[in-house]
Design a protein around this nucleic acid. Structure first.
Lengths: 149, 149
DNA sequence: ATTCAATAGTTGTATAGACAATAATAGTGT
DNA sequence: ACACTATTATTGTCTATACAACTATTGAAT
C-alpha cells in the first residue's frame, strides 16, 4: 500500500515492475535520510562512503581505482570526490613513488575524527531500518543478491 | 555473497547496515540497466518516468505539482525535465486558463508513439528481475513497504 | 632503442538531484 | 481597494552521475 500511495500509482504492469519501482523509490528514501543526517557534518553520502572505504584500509593507502571498485556507484568520479575531501583536509593525496601513474590516497587524522564523531553523534541508517526484523533484513538481502545474479 | 564481492567489503556493522547498502547498490544496478535500454531511444530514465506518468493521465493534462508528487524521486526538478521533453516534442505545455499560475502538461502523439515503441522493442526491467520468483518479488515488496513505514 | 599497447588518472560536457530564493498569480479579510 | 498569505512554477548554484576524450607513465615486443 505504501508505495502505491507514495507515488500515486494504483497499478503496475506486474509484480516485478512494482519491485523495480519499489527498489528505486526505497533507495531514494534511504539516500535522503542519510544525506540529512550527514548534512550537519558538512559531508555528502558519497563523500562519506569514500571516507569509510579509506578508513577500512587505514593505515594502508588506496589508489583511485581501488576506491572506485569499492564504491556503491561505480560510475561516480572518484577523482572529483577525493578532491572535495582533500579540500576539507579529510584525505591526503600523494603521487606514488613506485609507479608515478598512480595516486596514493589516505584518510587523515581529521578524517578519522570526523567518522568517529558521526558514529557517536548520529544514530545512522540502522535506526531507519529497525522497522523490520533481523530475519526480514536477512531475507531482503538474500533476495536482492539473487536478483542481481 | 554477491554484494560483498561487488563492493569488496567483507564485513558490515550488522545485518541492517548491509541491507541499506544492498538497497542502494541494487538500485544503482537497476537504474543503469534501465538507462542502457532507454539510451537508443534518446531518453533518460527520469524523462521516461515523467512520460509514463503523463500517459497514465492522458488525455487529461497534469500540472507540474501533480507530476512531482508521482515521481520516484520527489527532489527532482519537474520544470527542467518537462522542458527537456518539450524540446523533443514529447510533451506540450500550456498555461492554464482557469488558473494562470499553473501549467498544463500533456503527452503528445509523438510521446505516445515513443512509449509504444519502447514497450514493443525493449524487454523492459521486468526481464532483469526474472531471476527471482513471483513469490520472492511479492516478499520483497512487502518488506520494502514495511521498511519505510 | 623504438614503437606500441596497457594502465592510471584527469578533464570536459551533458543530465539530474538538493535546496534556497524569487516571481507571478490567486484568494482572503478588512 | 488594500494588504497579507498561499499556491504554483522558475531560476540559480552546488554536488554528483554518465560517458567519452585526453594525458602521462609504464611495460612489452621486436
Amino acid at each position: 500500500m505504501a508505495l502505491e500511495q507514495d507515488i500515486r500509482q494504483e497499478k503496475f504492469d506486474n509484480e516485478f515492475h512494482k519491485t523495480a519501482i519499489n527498489i528505486l523509490y526505497t533507495s531514494s528514501w534511504l539516500y535522503n535520510l542519510n544525506a540529512l543526517r550527514l548534512k550537519p557534518f558538512g559531508i555528502t553520502p558519497e563523500q562519506f562512503n569514500v571516507l569509510r572505504i579509506l578508513r577500512g584500509s587505514h593505515p594502508k593507502p588506496l589508489m583511485l581505482a581501488d576506491i572506485t571498485c569499492r564504491m556503491i556507484d561505480k560510475n561516480s568520479n572518484a577523482t572529483r570526490l577525493v578532491e572535495k575531501l582533500r579540500q576539507k583536509d579529510f584525505v591526503q593525496r600523494t603521487v606514488c613513488e613506485g609507479n608515478r601513474r598512480q595516486v596514493d590516497i589516505k584518510i587523515t587524522p581529521r578524517g578519522l575524527k570526523l567518522l568517529e564523531s558521526i558514529d557517536k553523534e548520529s544514530s545512522g541508517w540502522t535506526a531507519s531500518l529497525k522497522n523490520i526484523s533481523k530475519a526480514e533484513a536477512q531475507e531482503l538481502n538474500r533476495i536482492l543478491d539473487k536478483l542481481r545474479d
